Structure formats: C-alpha cells, structure tokens
Simulated assay, not measured.
Amino acid sequence: MDLFGSEAAAPATTPAATPHSANLLRTPETASPPVRPGAPPWTPPVTITPAAPPTATPVRPSAPPPPELPPKRQLLVGQFVLEYTLRRSTRRSIGFMIDDDGLRVTAPKRVSITEIDNAIRTKQHWILSKLHERRERRAARLEKPPIEWVDGAQLPYLGGDITLRLLVGGRNRSTYNPATRELSMVLIPGATELLLKERVKAWMQQEAKLLFEQRLDLYAGRLGVRYHSFALSSAGTRWGSCTVERKIRLNWKLIHFSLPLIDYVVAHELSHLLEMNHSAQFWNTVGLIYPEYEEARNLLRKRAQELPVLFG
C-alpha cells in the first residue's frame, strides 16, 4: 500500500539571492577561524567553481527509450474537463490516486469504461478538491527559495535546522556534531557545488536508513509483525509503501521531519502487514501502536509544504 496521507487514495468505489556564491567556503577577513577538534589546519580559502566542461564526449551505447505512459482519458465532470490516467490491474475494485501528475485510476480488467466514468462522477467532489489542494501545494513549494550552498547554510534535519560547515582538506569526509548541530563537510580544493549537494544527500540518506531500521524494529515488535525487507525510496509524493510480499519502503526525505512524524509513517506501513487497505480496521490497527495518527497525518502534510527546495 502507498502512503499519501489522507488525500492520496480514496476508499474503493461501489514531501531573491542567487542560487549559490562563487566562494562556498568561509572567508575570514582579518584572522583565521577557530580550529575545531579533529578539523584540518586552516588554509587560505579556496573557491569552489563548477567543473570545466570535458573536451570530448565519450561515446556511450544508446539507452533504450523510456516506456510510454498510458494515454490520458478525458471526462466531462460538471463544468470541468477532467483528465485521468487509467491503469488496469487484478484488484477487485476501482481505486483513485492523486499526485503531482493528476488523477490516476486503477480498475479491474473486467470493468467497463462507462462504469469507471460513473465511479469518477460519484467521487467528483473528493477528486476535484484534492486536485486543487495538490496544485496549491506544488505552487507553494516552487515559490520557496532554494537553499544557498554556502558555509553557514541551514538544512532541515529531524524537525529542526542544522548548520552546514565547509572546510578544505586533502580528502572528502563528513562529520556531524550533535552538540553544536553542525554538519562539517571537508572538501578537496576545486570541489563543485554539485559534489557538495550529493555529499549532503548521501549523508542524510545514511542517517535515514539507520534511524528508520531502528524505528521499524521497535514498532514491529509492538504490533507483533515481521516485515520481509526494508529499503529507502526517493519518490516524489509517497512517504512510504508496503507490498503483499511484506517489503517496506520509506522515503529518505522523512529525515527532514521530527521523530514523531517518522514514527507515524513507520506505524502506518507496518499496519499494512495486517490490513492491506485503508479501512476502518486498518486505522484501528494504526491506533494500537500510534494513537495520535490523525494529528501526525495532518502535521506531516503541513510540514511537507514548509520544506525549502534542497536538491531539486
């Protein structure tokens, strides 16, 4: 099952300044900065500039063309022409899903187009309201200024901000000090901003994997279930998913949020091991190990809208 919060899946029918400075490293004006324990000796600031373009382009085998997406269908709903993507599956009922690409309908192979259109009309108020909410959220995310990847930048981590510190050294390495909430990135001279962003993302993904595994084991024990495997995802709109093979995936970007919100998603996906749906019994199961799930679900939606643009 996919976790979209309350808006993602309906019951079955019938996450002013220029983008970056030329110099990403701290540049003291009159004195050397204080030396932190374990940090390399300070050296004169080095400008991190974009890598020079290659002089020649290596020849690579041509990649296979991407799979074609199902064509969108159109349906007149009231005064609106509603577009949706139809997918056929072995499921027993018609399901609806809203994401940044619009409405996606999954229906059994035996169900006719007329039945699908009628099901959409039955759910039209829910569908139109959720599409409107999704458009507003997307617009709000795009309006937020991106992070400036300079020394002292503030990055969202576990519900708060941590400070990015940039240092020059002989090799790339990362160090996090929880006492000062500083993430120190030691970069070789000439490192690019792209490399810095990839290094920060890799560190956050590593932290996410370790933390999520701990929380999964904790809540699985409370619920009395066992999952087959766990992996990180980078989905654009899904915070988590659970398959019938008991495989759980959690979006690494949850590491930006506070622990209670992470625990809600963990409890949500583990509950699908017992109830592969979003029925009343499913939410009762979630409530057994996470009673405040409704508050967490709403807060997760709000916090996701407040995130700055990091790696987009």
Rank of each mutant, 00 (worst) to 15 (best):
R87T: 15
A220V: 08
L25R: 10
V186P: 04
I98W: 03
S21Q: 12
K247F: 14
Y227L: 07
P156Y: 04
E148W: 09
G312Y: 05
P58C: 06
P146H: 09
A140K: 12
E136S: 13
F96R: 04
P44A: 13
W239H: 06
W42G: 08
S6P: 03
Q124C: 13
L300K: 01
A8M: 13
I262N: 00
W203D: 01
A202V: 00
P260T: 12
L166A: 00
P145W: 09
D217C: 14
F257H: 06
H268A: 00
P65N: 08
P61G: 05
P146K: 11
T180C: 05
P11D: 06
T122G: 14
L183R: 02
D101R: 12
G160S: 13
L216N: 03
Q79N: 10
T57P: 07
T90W: 15
P260Q: 10
L164Q: 02
Q205G: 04
N172H: 14
E269H: 05
A51L: 14
P19M: 10
Y227R: 05
R297A: 04
Y290G: 04
A63R: 15
G38M: 08
V225N: 00
R222D: 08
P37W: 09
P45Y: 05
V168D: 05
K109E: 15
Y290K: 08
I147T: 06
S241E: 03
K130P: 00
P308H: 04
K247Q: 15
A231I: 10
E83C: 13
F282C: 01
L194Y: 15
A39H: 08
W252K: 01
E269L: 02
T14D: 15
L232N: 00
H256K: 05
M1C: 11
L164P: 00
N298P: 00
A56S: 15
L288C: 09
R87P: 06
K72D: 14
T237F: 05
P308N: 03
V35A: 14
H20D: 10
W126Q: 00
R138P: 08
N118G: 13
G38L: 06
A280N: 09
W203S: 01
L82K: 01
R138G: 11
I262G: 03
P156M: 06
E29D: 14
V150T: 10
L86T: 05
T122K: 11
P53V: 13
L75S: 07
H256V: 01
A235R: 05
E294R: 15
L187D: 00
G152P: 03
T163Y: 02
E306C: 06
R121A: 11
P67H: 15
A139M: 11
K144P: 12
A179G: 07
P66Y: 03
P50I: 08
E193F: 06
H256I: 03
E245P: 07
I162G: 00
V309Q: 12
I147C: 03
R87W: 14
R92Q: 15
P33V: 12
L211Y: 07
P50V: 10
A267S: 06
V200C: 02
L131Q: 10
R137I: 07
D151Q: 07
L223H: 06
